[in-house]
Design a protein around this nucleic acid. Structure first.
Lengths: 186, 186
DNA sequence: GTCTATATAATGATAGAC
DNA sequence: GTCTATCATTATATAGAC
């Protein structure tokens, strides 16, 4: 079912893996070149703006992927709680069951934050509002819906971070299971 | 009441601020020198092993500070739920009400993870067990206590991360308030 | 203990051939 | 589109005077 990936998409995936694992400053051109099998000069052919351009392109790509895999489910016509559980499942997919970081969160740290921080903040506020909207449709008052949305995002990103800190993806997997159960019950 | 800080403690605090804000690779010697008001060579007088030694010392320091401010409260003789709420308050103190990162989490990312990852993982497992122990004493079965501990840590670290991603410390402050309420209500 | 000056290595980035 | 070779800059780290 997976549509065949273009050359550029494969390239982007290879670069994303390095940025996710090492962060913006930790991802050196030597490592990026090695991960893609290209020389440094070839990377500059694809990204004339160098590392900064790579980060921008990859950030857009990650946001689009999260939208497609996870947040998209929030705006369907289905039952609100089904939308939430579908969203959680999509996020689990994006995070590869707790085995990888979210690039958006990675690029919000270190010096990349100076460049992308406000964009990312806006994005997270939009996402949070999108979740809150679904909770409202499920019967919560606006204030409570907003906090429930913040709590859900916190638990997803928190357990993903803790999975990394504990060096154990199952921390994330259990959180996904628990959250899914919480919102599918009733 | 705060005991006067030694020269070295002040120095460490200044260095920690840079590592917290920029990460391990993002914290350059130039920035570290500027933050301390010292020249680079003077930093090597205090830390002959350079950046790597700074990170090791600062990591130990951060773990000790977290122990002193937060986790210490888990092993008092008080009521289990009081211990939990005291722990949360202490973590809030360490995180400066959501305005700063946890250095331990910062040093678990990027290339510093290669050096400190397993130590940090062990530390988090110990901390999690310490919280679980309290939940057990409050009446939970071991399995449930363990998951409740993971959930609490996830929410604290997740809301702290989300506060950064949203560029809004109140995300963390509200989580602390909500968690405190959850565990202080009977 | 701190400094200036400098060495050494790595990084991001380019030029130009193919 | 990819390469080799190289550049300029920045990074970590050291020597040695004070």
């Amino acid at each position: 079912m997976a549509s065949p990936k273009s050359r550029k998409e494969v390239l982007i995936d290879q670069l994303v893996a390095v940025f996710r694992a090492r962060g913006y400053e930790g991802a050196t051109l030597t490592q990026l070149a090695k991960a893609t099998g290209l020389g440094k000069a070839s990377l500059y052919h694809h990204f004339p703006g160098g590392k900064a351009e790579m980060a921008s392109v990859l950030l857009r790509h990650a946001v689009a992927e999260l939208q497609q895999k996870a947040f998209r489910h929030l705006t369907t016509k289905r039952d609100p709680l089904v939308r939430i559980t579908n969203f959680i499942a999509g996020f689990d997919d994006y995070a590869e069951q707790g085995n990888t970081h979210c690039l958006v969160a990675v690029l919000a740290q270190g010096s990349a934050a100076e460049t992308h921080g406000s964009h990312i903040a806006q994005q997270f506020q939009d996402w949070q509002a999108s979740i809150a909207q679904v909770f409202e449709e499920s019967g919560m008052k606006p204030k409570k819906a907003k906090r429930a949305a913040a709590s859900l995002l916190s638990e997803l990103y928190g357990s993903l971070l803790l999975a990394k800190l504990n060096n154990d993806p199952s921390v994330f997997q259990r959180a996904v299971k628990r959250l899914t159960k919480t919102y599918s019950a009733q």
